[in-house]
Write a protein that binds this DNA or RNA. Structure first.
Length: 205
DNA sequence: CTACCGATTATCT
DNA sequence: GATAATCGGTAGT
């Protein structure tokens, strides 16, 4: 599967957030010298801007924590939330903007599910990666991934081309107060309608 | 320096 | 539905 390109992320953040639905988040692990691939179809995203978006980490300008959001597009932005969990974003904004990122809130596991279950200490498939903290735990993503190039096909964390979503739904973002009126959360209208329609056959992970 | 609280989740009732 | 867990950014003393 081909990696997404730098140019893909050099567009309006909300546009990229929608276009990321159906693409594949790929994590390469080395388990005792052997490469293992964990992968899932991105099913839910949220767009975060900069000075115009009070819910965004970038709202008050660059700081030590959020500087990645102002940097190279297609890079990974990982932060710690509630002192316990990690959230993974990909930097994306248009040439007219100065910062922005897309939060990956949920994926549909398609490869390496057994390892994800071990990482999550969970067995129920449906609870494996249906939240931003869960995605990072399942894939073993922490702050050391901050600043990684997700458009590089040999990165241990990258985003590859996937399926074309049937229908996308927009709604309000989760867990924020300021800027809560914006419909910047996007999800596949029906995960299973895509996954059960045979389009999974296009994967050869 | 201290106090508050968050782009969350698991585990209760 | 309510709440604890737990770190670091941010604002205020």
């Amino acid at each position: 599967m081909e990696c997404t390109t730098r140019g893909f992320y050099e567009a309006e953040t909300t546009f990229v957030a929608r276009k990321l639905l159906g693409k594949v988040l790929v994590r390469r692990l080395d388990v005792s010298g052997r490469p293992k691939i964990l992968a899932g179809i991105i099913t839910e995203t949220e767009a975060y801007g900069s000075y115009e978006d009070p819910a965004s980490h970038a709202f008050r300008g660059p700081t030590k924590r959020n500087s990645t959001m102002f940097g190279t597009r297609g890079f990974c932005y990982v932060y710690l939330i509630y002192g316990i969990y990690h959230c993974v974003n990909v930097v994306a904004y248009s040439d007219e903007a100065i910062a922005g990122a897309v939060l990956i809130r949920s994926i549909f596991p398609v490869n390496g599910i057994a390892i994800m279950k071990v990482n999550r200490e969970a067995s129920k498939f449906t609870d494996l990666t249906n939240g931003p903290g869960k995605v990072c735990t399942a894939l073993g993503i922490n702050r050391s991934f901050n600043g990684m190039d997700m458009t590089f096909d040999r990165s241990s964390l990258r985003i590859e081309e996937g399926i074309s979503p049937v229908k996308i739904e927009a709604s309000k973002r989760v867990g924020i107060t300021a800027g809560s009126e914006l419909y910047h959360r996007y999800m596949l209208f029906d995960d299973l309608s895509c996954l059960h329609s045979g389009k999974l056959m296009r994967f050869s992970l």
